[in-house]
Amino acid sequence: MSGGEEILKVENVVKRFGGITAVNRVSFNVRKGEILGLIGPNGAGKTTLFNCITGVYRPEEGRIVFLGEDITGLQPHVIARKGIVRTWQKVRPFKKMTVLDTVTVGALLRTNSVTEAKRKAEDILKFIEFPEDKFEVMGKEITLIEHKLVDLARAIATEPTLLLLDEVAAGLRPNEMERLASILKKVNKERNLTMIVVEHVMRFVMGLSQRMIVMHEGEKIAEGTPQEIANNPRVIEAYLGTKPL
């Protein structure tokens, strides 16, 4: 399962803010079809790394290669068109648009026909088991878990090759987390969608990912299967020690 070709290569990426180095010479690869967990305590540089990959920030050093092409420093919308799409830690809903229209916006990246995009949006919403009676509800009127699902759906609708999920589980109740995890697994399997899952809810990410990377103070300190990570002494010291499983 994790033996697929490498679709994303992050090479020695450095991002500084003033005197602070938020991401320090981080390198890793993402293989086709896998769910890669990216964990670390708050301030470890996970979200900054995400922002570098998706073009929100331009890294000072290093390269990001996607499907054999250097995408370092391209604009976010160009990167999205090339197939890397993200969701947001704090949901960013289109409050005055309906759920269906919001997902349609995502689908319009690959078609000019609104009718076709809408049909696709409906399919995706059904696929992720979004309640059908809420398709026409405005973005400001839905619950947090529904927001997360819409956020996910509009990202999937752009037909990405790689999906970056930024702390999707944050703020959810345990049963909602389980629901989300099973949906993500389904998306991964049935749509063959590669994912990087940034998280600090350990249980959620351990159960979801096949491979994990641990960041601490801007650096990558470990990489391996969830089992290996859980037993890695450096990880336990840096992260798990302060926040037990």
């Binding site: 068109r81 799409v85 947001w88 990246l109 509009r154 990202a155």
Partner: peptide, 11 residues
């Protein structure tokens, strides 16, 4: 509604 989110969807 949200420029940043729109741009991240390829707009």
């Amino acid at each position: 509604e949200d420029e940043l989110a729109a741009e991240a969807l390829g707009i």
